[in-house]
């Protein structure tokens, strides 16, 4: 339908074969990844301290 008036189709089966719109995402948010890494590091430090505390009190009790 578009071919006669408005331009050629370059998909097999014409525009009806299109399953999705283009994936036009933005730039990767590096700051967000750094923030997540910081949170993970903080949690890791606290967890290791907690485990050490539990182990110490378990074996000295």
């Amino acid at each position: 339908m578009y071919q006669t008036v408005l331009g050629t189709s370059t998909t097999v089966g014409g525009a009806g074969a299109i399953a999705a719109l283009p994936n036009t995402g933005g730039s990767r948010n590096v700051v967000l990844y750094v923030a997540l890494a910081s949170i993970v590091l903080g949690v890791a430090i606290l967890t290791s301290n907690l485990l050490r505390f539990v182990a110490k009190h378990r074996y000295t009790a």
């Binding site: 948010n29 700051v31 967000l32 750094v34 923030a35 997540l36 890494a37 910081s38 949170i39 993970v40 590091l41 903080g42 949690v43 890791a44 430090i45 606290l46 290791s48 301290n49 505390f53």
Partner: peptide, 26 residues
């Protein structure tokens, strides 16, 4: 231990603040 706890909490706090600001900007 106190230093490590402070460091851990600081990392988490900084991550939450920076992450929050980043998401807000998006």
């Amino acid at each position: 231990n106190r230093w490590q706890l402070s460091a851990g909490l600081a990392f988490i706090l900084i991550g939450l603040i920076v992450g929050g600001i980043s998401l807000f900007n998006v």
